[in-house]
């Protein structure tokens, strides 16, 4: 486990971010998390522009994406990522409160790699985030060009 992938978490709710980070800390994955607070910031990070100008050029190992976001919403981010030649290989996991069928269908049609409904229960939420983090950042072999520690 000496090589972790970087996790890009796109989440507008600071409390959810904190809970998720707490969950990831247990596996010492928290340091590898970049948090974007809205869709615009997520795209800025991915394209290395704005406040992220000059970041190391590798792609994150996984992007955890909320759908309900200020400015640019999750589905738009997903669409941009999956239609960009350099970004489309990034595994994207939608992590959202919505289990509306139409959100799910649209995400899959846009090419999402996984769709996870945020569990209401705190324990389940923590477990879900942990498992996602471990799977995508440790177990899964990310596409070449992803960021390794």
């Amino acid at each position: 486990m000496e090589k972790f992938g970087r996790i890009l978490m796109v989440e507008d709710d600071p409390k959810d971010v904190e809970l998720a980070l707490t969950a990831l800390e247990e596996y010492h994955l928290a340091n590898e998390v970049v948090v974007a607070r809205d869709g615009q910031q997520a795209l800025d990070y991915l394209y290395g522009r704005g406040e992220f100008t000059g970041r190391s050029p590798e792609n994150p190992a996984v992007m955890l994406l909320d759908l309900k976001l200020p400015k640019v919403d999750g589905l738009e981010v997903l669409q941009k990522v999956k239609s960009d030649e350099n970004l489309k290989t990034i595994p994207v996991v939608v992590l959202t409160s919505s289990n509306e069928e139409k959100d799910m269908m649209r995400s899959y049609k846009l090419g999402v790699n996984a769709y996870v409904v945020k569990p209401v229960d705190f324990h389940e939420f923590v477990n879900a985030v942990k498992e996602l983090g471990v799977f995508w950042a440790v177990i899964n072999q990310p596409p070449p060009g992803s960021m390794k520690k």
Binding site: D13, L19, K118, D121, F122
Partner: peptide
């Protein structure tokens, strides 16, 4: 659901 998760969490 979200605030509730925070209270419990």
């Amino acid at each position: 659901r979200a605030p509730l998760r925070h209270v419990a969490g």
